[in-house]
Design a protein around this nucleic acid. Structure first.
Length: 519
RNA sequence: GGCCCCGUCGUCUAGAGGCCCAGGACACAGGCCUUUCACGCCUGCAACACGGGUUCAAAUCCCGUCGGGGUCACCA
């Protein structure tokens, strides 16, 4: 049997991190089994502009390297892959359901249904529609229609028996048919509902494994009923646990960002990203600037392979020790049997740990390549980037080591790329090291040594400073911080000798002179 | 509320009767290193939801309780 899996987002305008995890597991399973991964668009009830709302989803998947064999922009043997373009298929299915006696026309009004529901609730018995307005014959239909009623099509669910599901993740799950409702599959206006469309499409696309989030587990009986009534084979089901909120087992939701911000780690992640976003003038109040949405990570320069690695481990594990995986390794080792049943909560710190691990394994050239757009967006580099800027970038990236964890972190070292006469100062640090005490005097004298130093490289710089410290009979700390603030504007940064060497003599002196001059 | 699912350190997890007074990773705390910030190294903190069984032996099997979540639409 050919393995065919699918991810079926509805065009909402953004790609949810939990959705990505679902897509990823589908994709991994298909790739591992040399099958196909299909992207289908669930837009049965979409008023909005589908193209516009779909674009971020396609972009996000592509960015993460989750490619599809059939679907939007790609086509395929079972096209179209948009539910809104497959209405005739659903109509045909409804007719077959009706003809086979598995569904019926129902003329109840919403108010009547509501009344029945409430009555059942009042008597504390489970609600099940009485089928009072079920129309069996054309005569019935005519009678109800004469009363001005409109028909929907409902499923005629069995009143007894048990559905046994063998879920690849959950194991054996049972449902009583008698508890299932006569769900509507076609509205009065003739449009069909998701569950019907879903079953028809999965069959039409020959989906072999339905891998989806746990929220669909309770929906499975009615889908199985539809597919069996239609004579379709049952796919293999695998219901994945949720990606949950930090420290909770509730599904992660994009609308609860304010709540998540009370979580220290979440707040730290957002603050870090915000700094980068502001520097590149990316709107941080935008809907998509939200860690629940994939766009967020792309904006600040996370690595797709880190996100994929992290997400794969959210609910799945290979063993008790392996945690770093390349895409290929994931494809090789992934298995639905080793997917956990319990929801896994999203941990920003751990994501960053994976990001760090993957980023530090990149070549210097690659890091530079990834970081360059951030300098350009921030107005600190030209496009294309100049040879000089590139040269500095390479040195900064090398000296920064894992201080740069996401590509956007290059902006923590923006001072290297600012013109010497436009350097911004951390005033508190400036005060402490250049206005109070004798830091400025020392700096003034050290400046002259720098002016004459040859070569102007880290070992020589360090030796020069040691000489200076000995000659002045001071402690290293008394001069080093003054120099740092003078040349970078800040009290934190790279090793000072690296910093000076990267800047070079003339820029270092220019910055020291400017700092001394603004006291 | 009915039905369904789930329940090992703060978090992600390993664990399929003895290898577990529970292992790893991230986080956290303390220390070392140190020109700042990171890194690195060392040490530490920390969990089988609870109660009954079964068994020579249970985190692992059974039952119950409690807790959490999902779902009950003419949404997807």
């Amino acid at each position: 049997m050919t393995v065919r899996t699918r991810f079926a987002p509805s065009p909402t305008g953004y790609l949810h991190i939990g959705g990505v995890r679902t897509a990823l597991f589908n994709w991994l399973f298909a790739r591992q089994n040399h099958g196909q991964f299909i992207l289908r668009i669930d837009d049965t009830d979409q008023q909005r502009n589908v193209d516009e709302a779909l674009q971020p989803i396609l972009d996000g998947l592509r960015w993460l390297g989750i490619d599809w064999d059939e679907g939007p922009k790609k086509g395929g043997p079972f096209a179209p892959y948009y539910q809104s373009k497959r209405l005739d298929r659903y109509q045909a299915a409804v007719e077959r359901l009706l003809a086979g006696g598995h569904a019926y026309y129902d003329y109840a009004t919403t108010a009547e249904l509501q009344a029945e529901r409430q009555a059942a609730e009042g008597e504390k018995r489970p609600f099940r529609y009485s089928r009072r307005y079920l129309a069996e014959t054309p005569a019935d239909r005519a009678r109800f229609e004469a009363e001005g009623r409109q028909a929907v099509v409902r499923l005629k669910m069995p009143s007894e028996g048990t559905l046994v599901l063998d879920d690849l993740v959950r194991g054996r799950v049972e449902f009583d048919w008698a508890r299932e409702q006569d769900h509507v599959v076609q509205r009065a206006d003739g449009t069909c509902l998701y569950h019907l469309a879903n079953v028809v499409d999965d069959y039409d696309f020959q989906i072999s494994h339905v891998i989806r989030a746990e929220e669909h587990l309770s929906n499975t009986p009615r889908q199985v009923f539809i597919l069996e009534a239609l004579g379709y084979p049952r796919p293999v089901y695998a219901h994945l646990p949720f990606v949950a909120e930090p420290g909770s087992h509730t599904k992660l939701s994009k609308r609860k960002l304010q709540k998540y911000l009370k979580n220290r780690d979440f707040a730290a992640m957002v603050a870090h990203a915000q700094k980068i976003a502001e520097a590149i003038r990316h709107p941080t109040e935008a809907d998509a600037f939200n860690p629940v949405i994939v766009d967020f990570y792309q904006t600040v320069g996370y690595l797709p392979e880190a996100i994929v690695n992290y997400l794969a481990l959210l609910g799945w594990s290979l063993d008790d020790k392996t945690e770093h995986f390349s895409r290929e390794e994931l494809i090789e080792h992934f298995s639905l049997e080793r997917v956990n049943k319990a929801p896994a909560s999203f941990d920003p710190r751990k994501l960053m740990a994976f990001e760090d691990w993957h980023f530090q394994r990149l070549s210097r050239a690659r890091k530079v390549e990834l970081a360059a757009p951030f300098l350009q967006e921030a107005g600190l580099a030209t496009s294309p980037i100049s040879a000089e800027t590139r040269r500095i970038m390479e040195k900064v990236v090398a000296a920064a080591g894992d201080r740069i964890k996401v590509a956007g972190d290059i902006l923590s070292f923006a001072d290297f790329f600012q013109p010497d006469d436009q350097l911004l100062y951390d005033e508190a640090a400036f005060d402490k090291h250049l206005r109070q005490g004798n830091g400025a005097d020392l700096l003034c004298r050290f400046r002259d040594r720098l002016a004459a130093l040859e070569p102007f490289d880290p070992p020589a710089l360090e030796a020069a400073m040691q000489d200076f410290v000995a000659a002045e009979q001071i402690k290293l700390g008394q001069i080093i911080h003054a120099v740092r603030v003078a040349v970078t504007g800040k009290s934190i940064g790279l090793g000072l000798f690296d910093t000076l060497a990267i800047l070079g003599r003339s820029r270092s002196l220019a910055r020291i002179d400017r700092a001394l001059g603004r006291r």
